[in-house]
């Protein structure tokens, strides 16, 4: 029994094959970076940096995760570094983006009701049945692109990476209450953008 288990573990243990990285993972990693940064050049740079960084630490690879998971983890940290630089490097740009949209135009500032022209309407986004709705996800990508950098960072770390809210707050230096404000505004904005471009 014990031997059997050991054999299993042995079989599962991944090994590194750097010669095949570009062929096997370059596009995958590029997609990973691009969907999170919406910046082509930066995504390319990070893919390259990831491979080079990985080569430097091949001996640290323990084979407990797959090669792809390992490379993705390296890239993920690089993406977070970019987010972090963006949020600190631009000084208080975050506060600025918040106050710029202070009106939060979708709701009446007095009573908080939807403004008539911004009310959500049904347009097929109510059910998750997106077969044949590839266009909709293209629109979504365009809408994501319009978001302020920090909003995109917070939103994708939560909804793509499933990171804990506390982790996101501490890594991006965002307060808990701002975190929720950003999550809310991002979604309301995205939804409105989808509706506007779909109908």
């Amino acid at each position: 029994m014990e031997t059997h288990r050991n054999q299993f573990v042995q079989l599962e243990k991944a090994i590194l094959n750097p010669q095949l990285w570009v062929k096997n993972y370059a596009d995958y990693l590029y997609n990973y970076a691009y969907t999170r940064l919406n910046d082509d050049e930066m995504a390319r740079d990070l893919v390259q940096e990831t491979f080079l960084a990985a080569l430097e630490k091949t001996e640290k690879f323990e084979g407990r995760s797959s090669e792809r998971t390992w490379l993705t983890a390296i890239l993920k940290n690089k993406v977070i570094d970019v987010y972090r630089k963006k949020s600190s490097g631009l000084g208080n740009s975050f506060e600025k983006t918040l106050s710029d949209t202070d009106q939060f135009e979708f709701f009446d500032s007095q009573n908080g009701h939807w403004k008539a022209e911004d009310q959500p309407k049904t347009f097929g986004l109510e059910e998750y049945d997106l077969l044949g709705k590839k266009e909709l996800s293209h629109i979504l990508q365009k809408c994501l692109k319009k978001l302020p950098g920090l909003w995109l960072a917070v939103f994708t770390m939560k909804h793509m990476d499933d990171l804990a809210s506390e982790t996101i707050c501490s890594q991006l230096n965002v307060t808990d209450s701002n975190f929720w404000v950003i999550m809310h505004r991002t979604k309301v904005n995205l939804r409105a953008c989808l509706q506007k471009n779909w109908l």
Binding site: T35, R36, E126, Y128, L130, S137, L140, F155, M160, R191
Partner: peptide, 18 residues
């Protein structure tokens, strides 16, 4: 309507990459 659409957006965002 917002609630339903919001949940769909979550899944779409995940699907963009995964």
């Amino acid at each position: 309507i917002y609630l339903k659409q919001s949940l769909t957006i979550n899944r779409m965002v995940k699907n963009l990459f995964y």
